[in-house]
Design a protein around this nucleic acid. Structure first.
Length: 345
DNA sequence: AAAACTATCAACCGCTCCGGG
DNA sequence: ACCCGGAGCGGTTGATAGTTT
C-alpha cells in the first residue's frame, strides 16, 4: 500500500501528464485513493462511461494520472467486482488456468468474472507460489515419480484444504483429467518449428537456449486411461516438432522457482492408426460438466499427418463454450503452438 | 506488552503494443 | 517509416494488518 497524500510530477505515467486549464502540467497525486477521490471517479464513470483515461482524470476533477484512474477503476471501483476471498472453485480454476496460460494474469482474470488480474496475481504470488516454495523438497520427490498430477493435487490440497469437495476422493481423478484436458487442447504437430512462450524451437526441438519445449499430453490416451494415474499417460506424451510414429526420449521439464527438475526420461510412441474422426465425451462425476474433444487428422503441407483437436467445452468450467480464453484466440494459437500442463512458477 | 516476523494487497513502474498523424 | 500518446500488461514495492515469539 502506498502513503496517501503523495504528490509527484508525473513519472512512469508517460501517457498522463495532467494538464490544467491553462495548459500547465499539474502535479498528480500518488498513493492510496481517498474516499472522495473514489467517489469522484465512480460518479464520473457511471455518468459518462469509459473514454480516454487522461480525459477522465481531468474531467472528473482528479489530480491523478489517467493510468492511476484506470487501475483504480479496474481493480477496485468497477461495479461488477467480486469482493472477498477466492472460493475453492475459483482457486481451483486459477491453478488450472495457470497451468495452461502461465503468468498471463489478464487472460486468467478474463475467465473469472468479477476478479481482476491484480487480485489473481497477488493470490498466486502469495499463496500458491509460497506454498510451492515450502514444499520444494516434496516437489523433487514427486517429480522423481513422474507425477506432476500428484504435485498439483498436493498443492491444491494445501491451498484449498482436505475437506473441500473439490479435493474429495474423486477429485484426484478429476484433476488428472482436467490437467490432461488442458494439455490436449494445445496438442498439435504442425511445422518444423513451433512457438511456445515466445520461444522458437528448431528441428531438434530445442529453443535458442538449448531447452526442450514443454510436453503435451494426448487427450485420447487420457480418456482411455480414465485418468487413473499420470504415469499411465506418459506413453501419450507428445512433443511439438516431431512427427507421429516417432519414438522419442523426452526429458520431463518441471520448473519451480526457476529450478528445472529432470525426472527420468519417458518414451513416447504415437501411433498413426488412430487417424479417424473421434469424439470424446468425457462425462465427469456428479454434476461436473462435460467437455468434448473431436479428434481428426489433416494432411499438412509437408505430407505429414497433423492431429487436429477441436475442443468444445473446457475442463469442468465452461461446458459448451467455444475454446476461447479472454481475448486470446486459443483456437488460432493452438493451431501453431504446443504447451503442457506444467506449473510455471 | 512489545518486538519481530509474515502475509496481504493496493498501487506504482517500466515496458510493449497499437492506432493515428 | 517514424513519432507520439493512450491503453494495457506483468513485475515489483512497500504499508499495514495479523501472527508469532
Amino acid at each position: 500500500m502506498r502513503k496517501p497524500e503523495q504528490f509527484e510530477k508525473e513519472k512512469g505515467c508517460n501517457n498522463n501528464v495532467n494538464v490544467g486549464k491553462q495548459g500547465m502540467a499539474m502535479k498528480t497525486r500518488k498513493g492510496l485513493w481517498s474516499p472522495e477521490e473514489d467517489e469522484k471517479l465512480m460518479n464520473y464513470m457511471l455518468r459518462n462511461g469509459h473514454g480516454c483515461w487522461t480525459d477522465i482524470a481531468r474531467n472528473a476533477g482528479l489530480q491523478r494520472c489517467g493510468k492511476s484512474c484506470r487501475l483504480r477503476w479496474i481493480n477496485y471501483l468497477r461495479p461488477d467486482l467480486k469482493r472477498g476471498a477466492f472460493s475453492p472453485q475459483e482457486q481451483e480454476l486459477i491453478i488450472h488456468l495457470h497451468s495452461v496460460l502461465g503468468n498471463r494474469w489478464s487472460q486468467i482474470a478474463a475467465r473469472l468474472p468479477g476478479r481482476t488480474d491484480n487480485e489473481i496475481k497477488n493470490f498466486w504470488n502469495s499463496t500458491v507460489k509460497k506454498r510451492l516454495k515450502t514444499n520444494k523438497s516434496d516437489v523433487s520427490i514427486v517429480s522423481q515419480s513422474d507425477s506432476i498430477g500428484d504435485l498439483l493435487v498436493d498443492v491444491r490440497r494445501d491451498i484449498i484444504g482436505e475437506s473441500n469437495m473439490f479435493m474429495s476422493s474423486t477429485c484426484d481423478h478429476e484433476i488428472m483429467n482436467n490437467v490432461c484436458m488442458d494439455s490436449s487442447l494445445t496438442s498439435s504437430t504442425t511445422t518444423s518449428s513451433s512457438v511456445h512462450n515466445n520461444l522458437m524451437y528448431n528441428m531438434n526441438g530445442h529453443d535458442q537456449f538449448g531447452h526442450l519445449p514443454p510436453l503435451v499430453l494426448d487427450q485420447a490416451n487420457c480418456y482411455t486411461n480414465g485418468g487413473s494415474s499420470f504415469l499411465n499417460m506418459s506413453s501419450s506424451l507428445e512433443q511439438s516438432g516431431y512427427g507421429y510414429g516417432d519414438v522419442l526420449e523426452v526429458p520431463y521439464m518441471f520448473g519451480v522457482e526457476n529450478d528445472i527438475i529432470n525426472p527420468p526420461l519417458s518414451n513416447r510412441v504415437i501411433e498413426k492408426n488412430d487417424n479417424v474422426n473421434a469424439s470424446f465425451d468425457h462425462h465427469q462425476l456428479d454434476n461436473k460438466p462435460t467437455y468434448h474433444v473431436n479428434h481428426h487428422f489433416n494432411e499438412g503441407s509437408d505430407g505429414n499427418m497433423i492431429k487436429m483437436e477441436e475442443v468444445v467445452g473446457f475442463g469442468n468450467h465452461w461446458p459448451g463454450e467455444s475454446l476461447r480464453i479472454g481475448e486470446w484466440d486459443l483456437e488460432g494459437f493452438f493451431a501453431n503452438v504446443s504447451s503442457i500442463p506444467y506449473l510455471d512458477f
